[in-house]
């Protein structure tokens, strides 16, 4: 039998503690769920409404992140400009601040009586307690993930590929669509999945900007506070199953 090296043995033993801490709650929750309660939860219209609100918000936030974030990521990967380092740091702030603070920042800048918010209101976009508020708050906290993932993807591509494509007759736009984009699709797709997942799990910013319509993470808190731990378990298990699906999709995207 092949002998396992001492260091790996020790590190595996120590690492098992992390595995235990992480896996026990994930295994325990489904085991403690009453199947009848789970079935009721699946039929619960409030839960399905909250789920569809959350998915709609997260999907729109991800779509906006793709539309605005991917071009930005490309420019940041290919061009040097003044204050680029500062811009990079600023774009990562939403990932590092408490999300309640993120909510305050979003509300402050875009509430309907603010200068930008009033312009948006005239266009029919009000953020307080609307799906638009949910989308904006989700975009604020999650789009930096997509931007940095896409940027890393673009940076990995040999610029000579783009140079050659252009000498062969492709315009800059065509080069982007036929060479750059296909080669960075994996990075962009994995960034999009993570952005979507991060948006789905958002609580803090939504509590401040748009607690209504109710998103699923807020509903878990509400059920827990109103009816105790056991009534929050079925939704928790549903969300857990969805997260597992996301991880599997991500692994598929990354080709593992």
């Amino acid at each position: 039998m092949r002998k396992i090296e001492g260091l790996f043995l020790t590190f595996s033993a120590v690492g098992s503690v992390a595995i235990l801490i992480l896996l026990v709650p994930m295994i325990l929750a489904p085991l403690m769920t009453d199947p009848t309660q789970l079935a009721e939860a699946l039929m619960d219209s409030e839960i399905s409404r909250a789920l569809s609100t959350t998915f709609a918000g997260a999907s729109l936030a991800t779509l906006l992140a793709l539309i605005f974030g991917v071009p930005l990521a490309y420019v940041m990967a290919r061009k040097d400009f003044a204050f680029k380092g500062l811009l990079e740091s600023l774009l990562n702030i939403p990932l590092t601040i408490p999300h309640s603070v993120a909510g305050i920042l979003v509300l402050l800048a875009y509430h309907s009586r603010s200068s930008i918010g009033s312009i948006l209101s005239n266009l029919g976009i009000v953020i307080e307690d609307t799906l638009w508020g949910i989308v904006l708050a989700m975009f604020f906290v999650s789009s930096p993930i997509l931007i940095s993932s896409a940027r890393a993807g673009f940076s990995m591509i040999d610029e000579n590929l783009e140079h050659v494509a252009r000498t062969l007759g492709a315009s800059h736009y065509k080069t982007f669509l036929t060479v750059t984009l296909p080669l960075s699709l994996k990075a962009i797709a994995s960034g999009a999945v993570l952005t979507w997942a991060r948006a789905v799990s958002e609580v803090g910013a939504l509590l401040i900007v748009a607690p209504y319509p109710k998103s699923i993470a807020l509903l878990v808190i509400e059920r827990f506070e109103a009816f105790g731990l056991s009534s929050a378990i079925p939704i928790t298990v549903i969300l857990l199953a969805m997260s597992l699906a996301i991880v599997l999709i991500l692994n598929c995207v990354l080709g593992r």
């Binding site: 000579n160 140079h163 000498t167 296909p182």
Partner: peptide, 20 residues
């Protein structure tokens, strides 16, 4: 003129073949 309007063939040192 941009590269696409010059009709000049370019083979870089690493060949830069499109891997996809």
């Amino acid at each position: 003129l941009p590269p696409e309007r010059r009709n000049v063939g370019y083979v870089p040192q690493n060949y830069a073949l499109f891997p996809h």
